[in-house]
Every structure is written in C-alpha cells, then in structure tokens.
C-alpha cells in the first residue's frame, strides 16, 4: 500500500475516534455540571481542557472557563483543533483522499456525517441539544465502524484504519482516567466521587460491564483496573494493545520492526501487570509513563510505515 494512503487511513480513523471520545468526555462533563451538589463546577468543566492539553489554546481565545465556551470549543468551533468539528473535517478530508480505497458505503457514511455536521453547526449546539449531539457523534462513529466492519476487505486498508483507532483509543482512555483520578482520589468514597466514577464508566460505555464484573459499589480502584487491565473491556488499555499487536504483524511486508517491538513490550507490561504494582508506582505516574510509551509507538509507526523516504 502507498505510504500516503496508509497515512490517510490511519489519520482518518484516529480523528474519527478522537471525535467520538471527545463526545464521550463532554457527555460526562455536561451531566456532572447539571448535578447541583458538584460544588466545584468550574473544575469539572475545566477537566476536558486538562485531558486534551488544550488549556493554553483555550485561554488565549476565550479567557474565562464557562460551560458554554468549553462546550463550543470542543464541539462546533471550526477554529479549535480540539473540536469535534475539526476532527470530523479532517477525517472527511482523509477519507476524500482515499475514497478509492474505502468502500462506497464507508465514504457515504463519513460524507453524510460531515454534511449533517455542517447543518448542526448552523442550528447551534443548544438548539440541537447537547445530549442529542453527543449521541449523534457516537452514533455516526458506530455507523462508520459498522460500515467498515461490514463491507471493507480484510487487507492492509482495514489494518491501517484499525491501527489508528486503537492508538487513539489507548491514548484517550489513559488521559480520561488520569484526569478523573487526580480529581477524585482512588481511595476517596464520597457521594460525589461515586458520581464521578459512575460518569466515567458511562462515558466509556462500560457501566454495564462494571455491574456484570463486580458486585460492589462503584469505586476508583475497580474502575482503573477495568480500564487498564481487563481484556473483556473493549476500551481498556490492554484491549487496545492486544489489537495493536494483532494488527502490526499482519501488515504485509517486513517493515515496522521497532513498532512491533514497542507494541509487544507494552502489551506484556499490561498482560502481566496487576493493580498492586500500579498503585505502588502511583496511578498518575503509571498513566504518564503509558502515555509516553504509546506516543513513542505512534511516532515509530509514523516513521516506519507512513512517511517512507
């Protein structure tokens, strides 16, 4: 496959996945901001800025942190690189560049997503409904994934798309967990903490999974365990690494030794990790280290496959 094509496929799915995760994250923030006893609303709504590392950019454009501004910054702001609007615009541009490689149904799905988004952007977030919008983004992502799964040949085209999805998802899950953790300490068990962890579970669609896996009150340590170490949870770091380690060796040709090595090392760390070890290191340090490693892997994939000179 052409390196440029692989790059477009990879970034297409990364951007789509990022849009979906942004919607998930905002859904939580929006719901928490409606809970009156969440005393520090300001901290809740500032969380997405911390998660995505866009606080400075936001500050220079908007100054004060308000619910409306933060929501706009992350949803329909065409000038914010972190907005769902920007992610989907880029995803669609990548899809446009490789439309000969993806199936007609995939292209139609992403193209109509973009056309609808432009209409929603005319309507405005409030008029459309915040929750309705977040659901729409998630649904469009499900639809695209469904079209991909249901119609795309299992070739390198499929693999580079999936590669982008899991690199992005691993990064996003780690970030969302890291910020939630620094707000509510793992061992703290106030009602507000309960709501926070509950919201986080819902944001990654893992609430039902928690209920099925553990018959105990929702608490930070269990949530962290689920999202880091459990292979049954499709957004967990372990699940993401398992997928990456399946995909990389399946790509045709002998390129990518370092990528495969880095992914395998990280998979082993998760597969043979346990919560005790993680808590010894400290969750924040553990996640910071993970983010560094996943980004090193992303850079290596970029140079070994996508930017061939």
């Amino acid at each position: 496959m052409l390196s440029r094509t692989a790059s477009d496929l990879y970034w297409l799915s990364r951007n789509f996945e990022r849009a979906e995760n942004t919607a998930r994250m905002l859904d939580v923030v929006w719901n928490l901001s409606l809970i009156r006893f969440a005393v520090d609303i300001q901290a809740e709504i500032a969380a997405p800025l911390a998660i995505t590392g866009t606080g400075d950019h936001y500050g220079s454009r908007y100054g004060k942190v308000t619910v409306q501004n933060v929501l706009f910054f992350f949803t329909l702001d065409p000038d914010s690189p972190a907005s769902i609007y920007s992610c989907l615009r880029q995803a669609r541009a990548s899809a446009h560049a490789v439309r000969g490689k993806i199936t007609g149904e995939m292209w139609e799905s992403i193209n109509s997503t973009w056309l609808e988004l432009k209409e929603i952007s005319q309507t405005g977030l409030q008029a459309y409904g915040e929750t309705a919008f977040f659901e729409w983004v998630k649904n469009r992502s499900h639809l695209f994934r469904g079209a991909t799964y249901g119609t795309l040949m299992r070739s390198d085209t499929f693999r580079f798309l999936r590669l982008g999805t899991f690199i992005e998802r691993a990064d996003n899950t780690a970030r969302i967990l890291d910020v939630k953790h620094s707000e509510g300490q793992l061992e703290s068990n106030t009602t507000l903490d309960y709501y926070r962890w509950h919201a986080l579970l819902r944001s990654v669609g893992a609430y039902e999974a928690f209920r099925e896996m553990f018959s105990e009150t929702i608490n930070g340590e269990r949530v962290a365990e689920m999202l880091i170490l459990r292979p049954e949870v499709p957004r967990s770091l372990l699940s993401c690494l398992q997928m990456l380690c399946e995909l990389l060796p399946a790509i045709e040709g002998d390129a990518g030794l370092q990528s495969k090595r880095l992914a395998a090392v990280q998979l082993a760390r998760l597969q043979y990790g346990d919560m005790e070890h993680i808590l010894d290191i400290g969750l924040h340090d553990y996640l910071t280290d993970f983010l560094r490693r996943i980004n090193e892997l992303a850079d290596t994939i970029q140079s070994e496959y996508l930017e061939l000179v």
């Binding site: 496959m1 052409l2 390196s3 390198d156 045709e252 040709g253 390129a255 061939l308």
Partner: peptide
C-alpha cells in the same frame, strides 16, 4: 508517492 532510482520508477509503499 513516486521516485526514480537506477533508471526505473518506484512508488513508496508500506512494504518498501
């Protein structure tokens, strides 16, 4: 995506 080397044209692919 294309380059010339030793009298032939090649494309850059993920497999070289």
């Amino acid at each position: 995506d294309l380059f010339v080397k030793d009298g032939f044209v090649y494309m850059r692919t993920t497999a070289g």
